[in-house]
C-alpha cells in the first residue's frame, strides 16, 4: 500500500501550519510520540488491553493521544476522545460511509477500524480538509451547488469525493457515482453532489 503523505502536494509543514487550530492537540501529542516509539520496540509479542491504554493517532498532521480500550473504533476515538465530531456515525456497520476518513490517503470506514489499528498511520478527517480558512474545492462547490439537505451524510460524502479527485483529475460522472456508491444519503441529494464534485474537479485544474 502506498503511503501518500504528499497528497495534493501539501508539505507536512505547510499542512501543520494550515491546521493551526489543532495546535493544542499537537502539543499534547508530542509526549505521546515518545511513548509510542518506546512501545513499538519490544522483542516478543506484546499483548495489550482489555484495560485502557495510551494510543497515539496522527490526525490531520497532528499527533494526538488518548487512553482508550482496544475495542474503541476510530470513529469513536475521534468523536468521543479527541472531540472531533465532524466524522459522523450512522449505521456503525460499514454500510453507509458516513464515517469515511482517509487512512494513508485511502478512504475507509472509521466505524469498522479499531483506533489501536490506526496507530502510526496518516489519518485525515473532514476537519483537516480545509487549509485554514480556505475551503477545499469540494467543500466550496458543495456550498455553491447546495449539495446537502440535512447534512448528516455530508462529511463522509465530501471525504469520498475529495479522495476521488486526489487520484483522478478528470473524473467522469460515472467515476463520481462509483466513488460515492457506498455513501448513503437519505435526503437524496446525489445529483447535486455529482455536479459539485465535477465542478470541483474543474476548479482544481484551473
Amino acid at each position: 500500500m502506498s503511503t501518500s503523505s504528499s497528497n495534493r502536494g501539501i508539505s507536512r509543514r505547510g499542512f501543520l501550519k494550515g491546521a493551526g487550530v489543532t495546535a493544542a492537540g499537537a502539543a499534547i501529542g508530542e509526549s505521546a510520540v515518545v511513548a509510542f516509539a518506546e512501545e513499538s520496540a519490544p522483542k516478543g509479542p506484546k499483548i495489550v488491553g482489555p484495560k485502557p491504554l495510551s494510543v497515539s493517532l496522527k490526525v490531520n498532521g497532528a499527533e494526538k493521544s488518548a487512553a482508550i480500550e482496544p475495542r474503541t473504533t476510530l470513529a469513536e476515538a475521534l468523536r468521543v476522545n479527541l472531540d472531533m465530531t465532524g466524522t459522523k456515525i450512522v449505521c456503525d456497520r460499514g454500510a453507509c460511509s458516513a464515517c469515511t476518513v482517509w487512512i494513508d490517503g485511502t478512504p475507509v470506514n472509521s466505524c469498522m477500524t479499531l483506533a489501536i489499528d490506526a496507530q502510526g498511520k496518516d489519518i485525515r478527517t473532514i476537519e483537516g480538509l480545509a487549509m485554514g480558512d480556505t475551503l477545499h474545492p469540494v467543500q466550496e462547490q458543495f456550498i455553491e451547488h447546495d449539495a446537502m439537505q440535512c447534512g448528516f451524510c455530508t462529511p463522509g460524502m465530501i471525504m469520498s469525493c475529495a479522495a476521488l479527485l486526489e487520484h483522478n483529475k478528470n473524473p467522469s460522472l460515472d467515476d463520481v457515482k462509483t466513488a460515492t456508491s457506498g455513501n448513503l444519503c437519505r435526503c437524496g441529494t446525489y445529483p447535486k453532489v455529482f455536479d459539485a464534485t465535477l465542478a470541483a474537479a474543474k476548479m482544481m485544474k484551473a
Partner: peptide
C-alpha cells in the same frame, strides 16, 4: 462489542503462538 486483548503479530509463528 465485548472488550478484548489485542496483539499485533509480526510473523506467522508469532500469530499462531498468540492464538
Amino acid at each position: 462489542m465485548n472488550n478484548f486483548e489485542w496483539a499485533d503479530a509480526k510473523s506467522i509463528d508469532e500469530a499462531q503462538s498468540l492464538m
